[in-house]
Amino acid sequence: MTELGLTPYLCLGAFLFACGLLCIATKRNAVGILMGVELVLNAANVNFVACARFVPSFALEGQVFALLVIVLAAGEAAIALAIILNFYNNHATVDVDRADELKG
């Protein structure tokens, strides 16, 4: 949108980042923490694509970075869930406050 400018998109990215951080800090469920991480990554992506749109020299790079981040986030979510499922199999809970020993 040409009359909007870069600022609203960056503010939205900041808001999503703060929500993601709050999610990571307050959720006790391990899958909830993973959701917070996804929110943070999406906030960064919004910033990348908005800058690609409003800074013409960054147009190709912004989209390339956004695509790389999307792919990496998908891989990271897969591994995180595999770890969470392993933890659940060993401890019968996904409450991260119970994950206070290094063993198992």
């Binding site: 899958v31 979510a77 869930l81």
Partner: peptide, 12 residues
């Protein structure tokens, strides 16, 4: 990714 997350949520 969301399908994976929802599967993880439901399994745990």
């Amino acid at each position: 990714t969301m399908v994976l997350v929802v599967f993880g949520v439901m399994l745990t």
